[in-house]
């Protein structure tokens, strides 16, 4: 389990699996100036619905606005801020690292320590697949850096609520608003 810094919030959304949905969501974030540090999307357990996981930077007001503006999109079915829930957060990464016959064994041992898999072996490189929280991936990449990491590819975080409840089963709480808003810029 990951301890998120208070200014980062994990939000999940269930969305219609239709063309343009990602553009609508990304466009809304950009237009309203919300800062997403992470976005991942994939099919859900229900045909025709996808799940998105966002990590959003901001205070309570920003998170509430993000949640409500997301929910306002017609193709967004459910939204929930699961930051304060007990959640499992994972990310997957592929790391391509340079090897020589001398370093190969050592690198594979490092991967093994992280429960990472070697998924491709070439004479001068390895691809290591790791899944874990962000910190674990950062730590592995850091350990591999002295051997020269040629490429990393990361999926971004996915999150799921622990226990029996479905992730994102809550609608945004519409009647609990009591937030102060920052002064908006002056429009002449």
């Amino acid at each position: 389990m990951v301890e998120l810094a208070t200014q980062y919030h994990t939000i999940t959304a269930v969305v219609e699996d239709k063309p343009g949905v990602l553009a609508r969501v990304a466009g809304m974030f950009g237009r309203r100036g919300f800062n997403i540090s992470n976005l991942s999307v994939g099919h859900s357990e229900t045909h025709g619905l996808s799940r998105m996981t966002f990590v959003v930077e901001g205070d309570e007001w920003v998170v509430e606005q993000v949640t409500k503006q997301l929910y306002k999109l017609i193709d967004v079915v459910r939204v929930s801020d699961i930051s304060s829930d007990s959640i499992v957060v994972r990310e997957m990464a592929l790391v391509k690292v340079r090897v020589t016959s001398e370093t190969r064994t050592e690198i594979m041992r490092v991967a093994d320590t992280f429960h990472a898999k070697v998924v491709d072996i070439a004479t001068d490189s390895l691809i290591i697949e790791i899944s874990g929280d962000e910190g674990e991936i950062d730590a592995l990449v850091e350990l591999l850096n002295p051997f020269t990491v040629k490429e990393t590819m990361r999926t971004g975080r996915v999150a799921m609520t622990r226990g029996g409840a479905a992730t994102g089963s809550m609608k945004p709480s519409l009647d609990t608003t009591d937030q102060s808003a920052p002064d908006t810029d002056v429009v002449p």
Partner: peptide, 17 residues
């Protein structure tokens, strides 16, 4: 009727959507 408007600009004591 638009929940996103409630609490967007001013602090609200009683929100009614």
């Amino acid at each position: 009727i638009d929940p996103a408007e409630v609490g967007k600009n001013v602090r609200v004591t009683v929100p009614i959507v």
